[in-house]
Design a protein around this nucleic acid. Structure first.
Lengths: 213, 213
DNA sequence: TGTCTCGTCCCCCAAATGAGTGACGCCGCG
DNA sequence: CGCGGCGTCACTCATTTGGGGGACGAGACA
């Protein structure tokens, strides 16, 4: 019985070429394809593929969000992320959400089949490029601790974050710290990048947790 | 030597009547008056009054914010809050920020002098009406614990807050919980009221602190 | 029975936020 | 000596938020 593959990819061309390629490869079968995350979430539980190939950049729900939700429905299903970008942030989020592998789209087709086989046998395939970034993320800089660390915020950033945690809005922080509003917003943005956060709530929560674990 | 009083009050009429009244009262002296919080913050450290009468409702910086900052500059100076509103929220914030007393403006003038005397001798004067609300705030409902409690959030509210702490925005929370966007916002608003918070950051911070003190 | 809290949803509005850019000077590390 | 990180500020834009309302049914509690 061939390995049943589901494809989630908004670009029709890429999607169909991928499906075609899989169907031409002995031992693989594309059993369903979706052009958006919502459809995928709805149909995949019925389709019961063995593995999902998921694009990250899609209009509407992102592949990472889709991955996270899919994992709630079907925790066991392996999902391979496919993307054109090798940016640390997406990698981080995808792995955190339970991705079973992370491939760049420019990966050559044979490697893709290999990766699917690998994932089916419990591996976590990723290109060397990605693997490097992954280990970099988990080992901040020097002689590393093995756990994901809070990237160290600068003193100013901590000041700002602390005030945010105490309920002040950006404008009030600016007043208090005698800074311009835009400066404070710059800090907040940098904090988000460092903490992999997207909102006040997440930043504050990670900040507090890093203080008292 | 008379007690030196500073007045912060935007309403000119009220301010001057108050000053006049104090200056007519033996043992009291209004040494400075300000029509806004910013001026007060700038001048009060120089003027060195014995006590500050602070209005809450002022355009621009509120009396509570002014109080908080003043306390950073001069932690020892007693500040009496004067307000027309007896709403729990302002009381809560003012006391938290270090107010030494909380009077309603409709308090009769003699009581005001008495309150100033009381504050000067280390007391925390407040009208009975206020005092009631204060104790109510510190003792949620039944047979009370003496410490300020996290008002218990409902199960749904906790669910929402938890997702907020994990970085989801209201819309995403709605999707995840299968609720309408407006419903989620209603929860968030109720959470703010219960937690005396004004933002994601403050709510999340109080929530996490209540879980691990 | 009346009054409350919940859970759910709806509307409006002004202000705050996030995101994307861009810029400039300073400092430290290689 | 350049490059990156930091601190500082500016501008634009769509979206989200916070803060007001109001509404209705289901239970709880009195």
């Amino acid at each position: 019985m061939p390995t049943k593959v589901a494809i989630v990819e908004d670009d029709r061309l890429v999607r169909e070429m991928l499906a075609g390629f899989l169907n031409d490869s002995p031992g693989f079968r594309c059993v369903c394809q979706f052009e958006n995350a919502a459809d995928a979430l709805r149909e995949i539980p019925q389709a019961r593929p063995d593995v999902v190939l998921m694009d990250i950049n899609m209009p509407g729900m992102s592949g990472i969000e889709c991955l996270a939700r899919l994992k709630e429905l079907l925790p066991a299903i392996p999902v391979l992320m496919l993307t054109v970008y090798a940016d640390t942030d997406n990698i981080f989020h995808a792995l955190q959400a339970g991705a079973s592998g992370y491939l760049l789209k420019r990966t050559d087709p044979d490697k893709l089949l290999e990766a699917i086989r690998e994932v089916m046998s419990g591996g976590v395939p990723m290109t060397g490029e990605i693997a490097q970034k992954v280990i970099a993320t988990f080992r901040p800089h020097p002689a590393g601790r093995p756990v994901p660390e809070t990237p160290e915020l600068s003193a100013r950033e901590v000041e700002v974050l602390d005030l945010l945690a105490r309920g002040f809005v950006a404008k009030e922080v600016a007043d208090r710290l005698q800074l311009s509003f835009d400066t404070v917003r710059t800090y907040i943005r940098r904090i988000y990048v460092k903490l992999h956060a997207r909102s006040r709530g997440e930043a504050v929560s990670k900040y507090l947790k890093s203080k008292r674990p």
